[in-house]
Amino acid sequence: MTRAVVVNLGLPKTGTTTLARALRRAGYRTADWKIRPRQTPRTELHDAFVARILYEDYFASGDPLARLGGFSAITEMSAMVPPDHVLWPQTDWGLIDAIRRHHPQARFLLSHRAAALTADSMVRWRNLGSQRLPKHGVPGLPAGFGHARGELARWIDAHAAFVRRVFAGDPALLEFDVGDPGAPAAIGAHLGCSLPWWGHANRTAPGAGDGTGAGAACTSTC
Rank of each mutant, 00 (worst) to 15 (best):
M1C: 03
V6E: 03
V7Y: 01
L9V: 10
L11H: 06
G15R: 04
T16W: 02
T17Y: 03
A22L: 03
A26P: 00
T30Y: 04
T30L: 08
A31E: 09
D32T: 06
W33D: 01
R36N: 11
P37F: 08
R38S: 05
Q39A: 12
Q39I: 09
E44W: 10
L45D: 06
H46T: 03
D47C: 08
D47P: 02
F49A: 03
V50F: 08
V50A: 06
R52Y: 04
L54K: 01
Y55P: 05
Y58K: 05
F59R: 08
A60T: 10
S61A: 15
L65M: 08
L65V: 06
A66N: 07
R67P: 13
A73Q: 00
I74R: 00
E76V: 03
E76F: 05
A79D: 10
M80E: 07
P83G: 09
V86H: 03
D92N: 13
D92I: 02
D92S: 14
G94P: 06
L95P: 03
D97P: 04
A98F: 07
A98N: 02
H103F: 02
P104Y: 01
A106S: 05
A106D: 09
A106M: 07
R107S: 01
H112N: 10
A114L: 13
A115F: 10
A116H: 13
D120A: 14
D120H: 15
D120Q: 13
M122K: 06
V123M: 15
L128A: 14
G129M: 15
R132Y: 13
L133T: 08
H136Q: 14
G137C: 09
G140V: 11
G140L: 09
P142R: 13
A143G: 11
H147G: 14
E151Q: 11
W155M: 13
H159A: 10
A161K: 09
V163Q: 07
R164I: 08
G169W: 10
D170A: 04
P171L: 08
P171C: 11
L174R: 04
E175W: 05
F176P: 00
D177S: 04
D177P: 06
V178M: 04
G179R: 04
P184I: 01
A185N: 04
A186V: 06
I187G: 00
G188S: 00
L191I: 00
L191P: 00
W197M: 04
G199W: 03
H200P: 02
A201H: 10
A201W: 01
A201R: 09
T204P: 12
A208V: 13
A208M: 12
A208S: 14
D210S: 14
T212R: 12
G215K: 05
T219E: 15
S220V: 15
C222S: 14
